[in-house]
Design a protein around this nucleic acid. Structure first.
Lengths: 110, 110
DNA sequence: GTTGTCTATAACCATCAAGTTACATAACGG
DNA sequence: CCGTTATGTAACTTGATGGTTATAGACAAC
């Protein structure tokens, strides 16, 4: 994963509204109106957040009639976890399990 | 982990200079001068980055004579990994290993 | 206590981020 | 076509971010 990608992914995750959007999408795909209803801000604000998430690769979007459904894409989350896991030496326990995690992350890389 | 903390941690990780500082600190504690030498920017710029990292809880600092050593603190990285791992249902494999990771994360929470 | 070294702070600048309102565009149903 | 619904885009405001230079503060050595 490049520095540019990490910038985008961590930058996208640094906003609580966007994290909440991801949490919602983890349950089910949603359109812009659905997501706007969850927050107190305007629809264009949500559209902006969705653009940020899309550019980070965290969601994909496809038209469904007049609506556009947002779908969670977990690959960048997995990659970001992989980056964080590189610091596993600083977790004082559970090295073995984390090594297993790292192995599985490597196996699943596309 | 609160939304405020997640904002700070992911925000701190969203900058490649700060990630590089963390990578350096993963090897050994370092003072401001050491870190400044690694980059092309000024010492005050590095001091600012260190303040961001400290406020996110990602590093701690203590005086050593006229110098101040920065030390990597992995707890927030562990917590951020825990947050990311909540999306494990979207990794199509290795559920069991990730569940083990989550358990270990919970056990180690302070 | 003066000097030198290391680090922090202040003031400033340019750019970006997150929100707003107003309006434009896309797709579907009569 | 036309109207309605859903979403995107433009222009703007405000505040945060990331860098600079210049200067102040803390500590050690002598």
């Amino acid at each position: 994963m490049t520095d540019d990608q990490l910038d985008l992914v961590f930058g996208a995750l640094a906003d609580r509204t966007r994290r909440a959007i991801l949490a919602r999408l983890a349950q089910e795909d949603a359109n812009v109106g659905d997501l706007t209803a969850l927050f107190t801000m305007s629809q264009p604000a949500i559209s902006k957040h969705l653009k940020v998430l899309e550019q980070a690769g965290l969601i994909s979007r496809n038209r469904q009639g007049t609506m556009r459904l947002s779908h969670l894409e977990a690959a960048p989350l997995r990659d970001a976890t992989g980056w964080l896991a590189d610091y596993r030496a600083y977790w004082t326990e559970s090295y073995a399990r984390l090594d297993e995690l790292l192995e599985s992350l490597n196996e699943n890389k596309e």
